[in-house]
Design a protein around this nucleic acid. Sequence first.
DNA 1: TCTTTATGTGAAACCGGTTCCATAAAGGGA
DNA 2: TCCCTTTATGGAACCGGTTTCACATAAAGA
Lengths: 332, 332
Amino acid sequence: MKITMKEIAKMAGVSKSTVSRALNGSGYVSGEKKDEILKLVKIHNYVPDSKAINLSKSRTMTVALILPSTSGPFYGEVIRGFEEILAMERYFTLLMTFDSQEPPQKIRERYISLIRSKRVDGAAIFDPEVDGETVKEVINLGFPIVYIGESINGVSVDTIFIDNFNGSYSMMDHLIKVHGYNRIGFITGPANSFDSAERLRGYKYSLEDNHIEFNPSLVYRGDFTKESGKIMTDRCLADRVEAIFSSNDEMALGVIEELQRKGVKVGKDIAIAGFDDVFWSKYIHPPLTTVHQPMHSIGKMAAKTILDRINSNDVVKTPMRIVLSTRLIVRN
Amino acid sequence: MKITMKEIAKMAGVSKSTVSRALNGSGYVSGEKKDEILKLVKIHNYVPDSKAINLSKSRTMTVALILPSTSGPFYGEVIRGFEEILAMERYFTLLMTFDSQEPPQKIRERYISLIRSKRVDGAAIFDPEVDGETVKEVINLGFPIVYIGESINGVSVDTIFIDNFNGSYSMMDHLIKVHGYNRIGFITGPANSFDSAERLRGYKYSLEDNHIEFNPSLVYRGDFTKESGKIMTDRCLADRVEAIFSSNDEMALGVIEELQRKGVKVGKDIAIAGFDDVFWSKYIHPPLTTVHQPMHSIGKMAAKTILDRINSNDVVKTPMRIVLSTRLIVRN
DNA sequence: TCTTTATGTGAAACCGGTTCCATAAAGGGA
DNA sequence: TCCCTTTATGGAACCGGTTTCACATAAAGA
């Protein structure tokens, strides 16, 4: 059942070393012996055991992708981009997810121990609420690591994230300049969300640059769920905003449903804009104007960055901060 | 940088064997030595190299999940269910995807070689258009394998799939018995789709059981894309059907959009039903009546089945066919 | 007191490859 | 002809753990 290199060697009347060389094309092997070995390999369907290769080469050709979930509209795209690049370089993707129920400490313990056990050659980590201390601990492991989704300050680590600020800024610019709205409400995400904070910053700066005074009472704290969008709708209506800019599509959907329930005409009486461009945002009624996030590119860049680190012997390579642009999607 | 068991042993003044036993709790180790070893392990942050463990135990604690993609509404759910179960048993998930561009032969070559290289202890394969020959080849590798998404005939292999037939049957039953429709059009998927074929079968049997004659001219060949839904709409209208049952939600959406463009009242002049219950099907206007597919459960069952095979020393265990029920979602 | 039996430990083999090194024959240049 | 490469090959060490086995000692049973 399990044929090893040793047996191939015996059958071919050569040593293991020669079989290894023949298979890898390393070192010298005479033509005839090579043919004979390759013939036997084919006949017996021999495939080297990757566990042995991994050990002796001390690398696994595997990179971990660590993220909060695999469902929902984003992560699938990230995974796809990631896997796409890794597969091209003959690397494998080890997936690790953590659900938000799990205590943060446990989550980090899990992925740190994964990395320390050297089961993977590197890791891309998408841990939206990670703290600086953890990041430091992780990079001190001396492994190729890239953090996704957040700009981590004060720590030397490769990061890849989305330009939330400019995405938000340009959406506001659109609402103000193209549609002429002045009174625009903003629904934030949860307090600890870096993404949300950046989007709020874009909102503020755009107002300022357009000479509209920032009114804190038009900023509503949501939590990225549809439900919170619904809840905030009433308050927006009470404040008589002309447009609502929701910091994600999910809440925008909540707003739309609630408005429709109340008989308010979305897009006429009040305008809605979202952020994310999740895949259903073009299917809802009316289609949602939103900011597209290049999740697929994020996955690809993460993979490229990691491979770059793995293949670079230059240990002291300067960490990079890769910012990917968003794109305004105008629909309604 | 890299501390090994040997060095821990030397520092503790014991042999590797003792360290190994202390760490794994196997065999006898005296209390004091154990404490001393554990102390050193903690101090030096020692974590055994999983590559070495893998080799000597000849298992990897890793299971492959092989599927066509990671994006879209389905696969994320499958992955989530799969990973969820594996993580609980301290197994890892190795993800492998293939895009539809790639020639089928290459795809299979890739995953067969993955399995043969013994990089994983088992694999769940979601390969919708796999042929019987390939499946035979795969199971002859003697590895724990489960095929997802399709009932494979004549081959002894664990399979997990959705009850497309009954899902379709009960939708038809609903349309006929509850709404009293007699003239129902059916839009199929592509010719090679097993799912689509089963749904068509459900359509036919339900007609038969309800004493309505099957009319082949009311079956329209689509290809699961929204576009093909649009295209078929005209023909449905020409044939003056009372209801259209689309074999997936995507095409149903195409139909709805096309009907609305033509000014036909969806739900009044003509009824539409879909299949899949994708995320957005409840958000479109009007909300779509459809058949829910338990993708999350599929992932979970696949993982459980694989783990079961891995942990069972009973080699000749009878293959299982696990059929997961669909659920009718009535919305409009 | 004399076996058994339970406990504790290290040397060495093993998992299945890669790689270093010594050795040797063949070919090429002076 | 002599010396130096280049080509070929096998033995042995190594990667970093696990596991078997032999042996030693202490506790328990007869």
